[in-house]
């Protein structure tokens, strides 16, 4: 049973990345463009109420891809909007999703003092 759970996470996560790859290759877009499109897509799916079921189904398969970033920002905004009306749309966004950004900032800051980039070939 736990194997199936992992398999679903693998497949759903893989499919989201595959869609990203197709957007990148067919659209001839940079990673920056591709990720922006995926974040917006995640936010829209979240607004339609479709992203939470995907997380319930696939767990990390849906929370690890960047689409979930759009989802949690949107859920944060919607949850606060429900409580506080118009003001909540602005104030609630980072309620749910702060960990990704703060972790990236902290680890980025630390890494900058430890590592030196080199011209390594693939």
């Amino acid at each position: 049973m736990i194997f199936i759970d992992f398999l679903i996470a693998f497949v759903i996560g893989g499919i989201i990345c595959l869609i990203g790859q197709l957007i990148m290759d067919y659209g001839k877009l940079t990673p920056g463009h591709t990720l922006s499109i995926l974040v917006v897509a995640g936010s829209i799916f979240s607004g339609l109420g479709l992203y939470q079921p995907l997380i319930d189904l696939a767990g990390a398969g849906a929370t690890i891809p960047i689409t979930s970033f759009g989802h949690s920002l949107t859920q944060g905004a919607i949850a606060e909007a429900e409580k506080h009306g118009w003001v909540g749309v602005l104030t609630g966004m980072f309620e749910v999703t702060s960990s990704g950004i703060s972790a990236a900032i902290v680890f980025g800051f630390i890494a900058a003092f430890i590592f030196k980039p080199k011209g390594k070939v693939n």
Partner: peptide, 8 residues
């Protein structure tokens, strides 16, 4: 690039 590790 798409997983949150890519954001990191």
């Amino acid at each position: 690039a798409v997983p949150v590790t890519g954001f990191g």
